[in-house]
């Protein structure tokens, strides 16, 4: 059996949901409370990191395929760039908060407020969460003895 003991697996499969939810909370409430896209994205990634530590790499690969993760990464960054460009289109300035001026003024403790800032936070959260998990995943590819190995000629090793 791959991964850690049953106790760890059971607990982390419960806790994972809570961590993920907390990450979503931090991202979505980024414009109202401390935190935001980056911090929330890190929390999102850490829920999958926990899953990977408890269940092993193969399990997570089924749950969140690498190709999908890579796509999410690109979508996040692309969405952020698009929000900036939409500012240029609708309000005449790059990164302008085009929703803020007419529709969604900033109000304390209101979730739907502050124009494009929550949207940017969501995009950043997606980007940071996906890419941080990709970093962790890439680091876990290298193993001693088995798994993927980088073949380098023995003679060049000492150079």
């Amino acid at each position: 059996m791959r991964g850690m003991t049953v106790i760890v697996k059971t607990v982390s499969s419960w806790v994972k949901v809570l961590i993920f939810l907390y990450g979503v909370y931090i991202v979505v409430f980024g414009h109202l409370t401390p935190g935001g896209g980056f911090a929330g994205g890190v929390v999102l990634a850490s829920s999958y990191v926990l899953l990977m530590l408890a269940f092993g790499r193969e399990f997570v690969e089924q749950d969140l395929p690498l190709a999908l993760d890579s796509k999410l990464d690109c979508i996040g960054a692309f969405a952020f760039a698009m929000i900036a460009i939409l500012g240029l289109v609708f309000a005449g300035s790059f990164f302008a908060n085009f929703l803020y001026q007419k529709y969604l003024p900033g109000e304390p403790l209101r979730l739907i407020s502050a124009g494009t800032i929550p949207l940017s936070n969501i995009a950043i959260g997606l980007k940071v969460g996906a890419s941080l998990f990709l970093v962790f995943f890439s680091l876990s590819i290298c193993r001693r003895g088995k798994g993927v190995t980088f073949d380098s000629p023995a003679g060049q090793e000492q150079e």
């Binding site: 796509k71 690109c74 979508i75 760039a81 698009m82 240029l88 790059f94």
Partner: peptide, 13 residues
């Protein structure tokens, strides 16, 4: 800056 940046994240998709 925006054109190459947006295209850079669009292409891998």
């Amino acid at each position: 800056v925006a054109i190459p940046l947006a295209a850079a994240f669009l292409l891998p998709m």
